[in-house]
Simulated scan of single mutants.
Amino acid sequence: MTNTPSSTTCPYCGDEFLLRSNKKFCSPSCRKLSAQQEQRKKQPVNAANSPTERRKQYEVYELASRMAETLYSMPPAQRLGYIEEIIQLARSGECPRVRQILTMPALIRPNPDKKYLFRRGCKSYCTISQAADRYCRSSPWNAGVAAVVRGEVPDPPTGEIVEEVAEAA
């Protein structure tokens, strides 16, 4: 008789599990993740290899460009209100694309050589994410747009008197 080990390690996560002759992974999720990892090595899912991803990426950058165009085409007195609206829209979760645009590092800190990110291809214009980031940093939030949109910072005080505070006084 040969002694066989009673446990073995999962090739994906490294956890030990009870040995069975027909079981290679510790769980179905590790088996699936391992298969996905192997598939992505053969054919990565990115804009260079996937028409679907290329289209999604195009739509996101196109929407960011249209939002920046809207911002810069309105009178300066109305711009802060527009930025506040899109930040609140992204914070609420109603529009995940706007949330994605405002939190995208490539638009918050864009490469100046990628002129397609800027309105009219001019670096003197901000991207919509940069404008929102500057607004958030100079507002009572005093934090970056990504933290504000994700809800990592509390809402600034509104100046309203709450009933509990009024009763205590």
Rank of each mutant, 00 (worst) to 15 (best):
M1C: 01
T2C: 13
S6F: 09
S6N: 13
S7D: 05
S7P: 02
C10T: 00
P11I: 04
Y12M: 09
G14F: 09
G14N: 05
F17H: 04
L18A: 12
L19K: 09
R20V: 01
S21H: 12
K23M: 08
F25K: 03
C26A: 07
C26D: 03
S27H: 11
S34N: 15
A35W: 07
K42N: 14
P44I: 05
V45Q: 06
A47Y: 09
Y58M: 09
Y58T: 09
V60M: 15
V60Q: 15
V60I: 15
S65F: 07
S65R: 11
R66K: 04
A68L: 12
A68E: 11
T70E: 13
Y72K: 01
P75Q: 15
P76Q: 00
L80D: 14
G81H: 14
Y82N: 06
I83D: 03
E84W: 10
E85N: 09
E85L: 10
A90D: 07
A90Q: 09
G93T: 02
G93F: 00
G93D: 02
C95A: 13
R97N: 08
R99F: 08
L102P: 08
L102E: 05
T103N: 05
M104Y: 14
P105H: 07
R109S: 05
P110K: 04
N111S: 09
N111K: 07
Y116D: 03
L117H: 13
C122V: 06
C126E: 12
C126Y: 11
T127A: 00
I128D: 00
S129Y: 04
Q130I: 00
A132I: 01
R134F: 14
Y135P: 02
R137M: 01
P140C: 04
P140N: 01
W141V: 08
W141A: 13
N142R: 15
N142I: 10
V145C: 04
V148L: 11
R150T: 00
R150S: 04
G151Q: 11
E152D: 05
D155L: 12
P156T: 12
P156H: 13
T158Q: 05
G159A: 03
E160D: 03
E160Q: 07
I161K: 10
V162C: 10
V162A: 14
E163S: 06
E164S: 06
V165G: 05
V165F: 10
A166I: 03
A166V: 08
A169E: 14
A169V: 13
